[in-house]
Simulated assay, not measured.
Amino acid sequence: MNRVEGLPGAANLALVGGVVHLEPETAVFNAMLKGWETQQQARFLDWESTIKPRLWLVRRFAAFTNQYPWQWQPVEVEAFIDHLRASRPTFAVSTGRSYQNILRLFCEYITDARYSWPATCVERFGQAPVQILHEWNTVTHTGEYEGSPGRRPLTYDEVQALFDAADGRVEEIRGRRRKGALAALRDAMLLKTVYAFGLRRGETCGLDLADLRRNPRQPDFGRFGALFVRFGKSSKGGAPKRRTVLTVPEMGWVVDVLDQYLEEVRAALSPGKHPALWVTERRSRISGRRVDEAFETARSAAGLPEELELHGLRHSYVTHLVEFGYPERFVQDQVGHEYASTTALYTGVSDEFRNRLLLRTQQQRHPSLWEHQT
Rank of each mutant, 00 (worst) to 15 (best):
M1I: 07
N2H: 10
E5I: 03
L7I: 08
L15Q: 10
E23K: 04
V28L: 14
A31G: 09
T38Y: 09
Q39N: 12
T50L: 12
R60A: 12
N66I: 06
N66F: 03
Y68Q: 11
W70G: 04
Q71E: 12
V77A: 13
S87A: 10
S94H: 02
R97V: 09
S98N: 04
S98Y: 01
E108F: 07
T111E: 09
T120D: 10
F125Q: 11
E135P: 00
W136C: 05
G143E: 11
G143Q: 09
P149F: 02
P153T: 00
T155N: 04
V159N: 15
R186Q: 09
Y195P: 01
C205W: 07
L209V: 06
L212E: 13
D220V: 03
A226C: 04
A226M: 05
L227D: 14
L227F: 12
G238A: 11
A239R: 15
R243K: 06
T247W: 00
V248M: 15
V255D: 07
D256G: 04
D259M: 02
Q260S: 07
V265H: 11
A268I: 07
H274L: 15
H274G: 14
S284K: 13
G288N: 12
D292F: 02
F295Y: 14
S300M: 05
E307G: 01
H315A: 00
V318L: 00
V318R: 00
Q332I: 11
G336D: 08
T347F: 00
G348A: 04
R354L: 15
R356W: 02
R356F: 01
R360V: 05
Q362E: 10
